[in-house]
């Protein structure tokens, strides 16, 4: 007769086996895009393991955050990068021992955590009843996260905010010399149809229809930006009237 726990055990071994196979394929597959796809499959199996353990909230968050957002951007980057596969494999011999040492340390830490969890007296109560009865998994996490660990939670948020601001500061380039769409100006434009007689051979820049560009900021000559320095290339050499 098939029992529920037997099915859960079977599912656990199936998902674990696929997870480990995926992890191996992430490292060994030749194409980085395939690696990322195997990583995604690995995330998915980890989420399934969370579900079997009864942590449904964590499982869904793992899928939403890692598979739905982080891995998409990851895949995005890997697809866009022009990667030389041969050069990628070059340092494998040299870096393999370092990787093995780091992996070994992580493995030891995992063993420590599990042994402590199994043997410590204080963990005994928690082990028996990880979530209070009559409270759903999601509520239980919320109750702990926003009370006992609220400072750590806020701290983690701050770290992420700093990382985000840092990324923006590092990559943002202010394009003052390019024209942007100003939706407010467009909406509040005069609505009657304007007719103008255009002299033969005149460009749109001579008509004074375009908004003038903001004045060019003085820049040190040595810094060659992609967008500055060739104003004559634009179609509006001399800004005309303003609407």
């Amino acid at each position: 007769m098939i029992t529920d726990s037997a099915i859960a055990g079977l599912a656990f071994y199936a998902f674990s086996a696929v997870l480990i196979a995926c992890a191996v394929m992430v490292v060994t597959s030749r194409n980085p895009v395939h690696s990322v796809l195997f990583l995604i499959l690995g995330f998915f199996n980890a989420a399934a393991l969370f579900l079997i353990a009864g942590a449904e909230f964590l499982a869904m968050i793992l899928v939403i955050v890692y598979v739905g957002a982080v891995a998409v951007l990851f895949l995005f980057v890997v697809m866009m990068l022009d990667i030389d596969f041969v050069r990628l494999r070059e340092g494998f011999q040299r870096y393999a021992p370092i990787g093995a040492v780091i992996g070994g340390i992580l493995f030891l830490e995992l063993i420590f955590v599990l042994v402590t969890w199994q043997s410590s007296g204080e963990a005994g109560g928690l082990r028996l009843n990880p979530t209070p009865s009559a409270v759903s998994n999601t509520q239980a996490i919320g109750q702990v996260l926003y009370t006992d660990y609220v400072l750590l939670f806020q701290g983690a948020g701050l770290v992420l905010l700093v990382a985000m601001i840092g990324a923006i500061v590092l990559t943002h380039r202010d394009r003052a010399r390019s024209r942007r769409q100003d939706i407010q100006a467009q909406i509040h434009r005069r609505t009657q149809i304007e007719m103008a007689s255009v002299p033969v051979g005149a460009s749109i820049g001579d008509m004074g229809i375009l908004r003038p560009l903001p004045p060019e900021e003085p820049k040190p000559k040595a810094v060659a930006h992609g967008h500055g320095g060739h104003a004559g290339h634009d179609d509006h050499g001399h800004g005309g009237g303003h609407h």
Binding site: E56, F57, M60, I61, V63, I64, V67, G68, S136, N137, T138
Partner: peptide, 10 residues
């Protein structure tokens, strides 16, 4: 399921 909305979102 308890986390139906999250499942759909995922």
């Amino acid at each position: 399921i308890n986390v139906g909305v999250l499942y759909l979102f995922a």
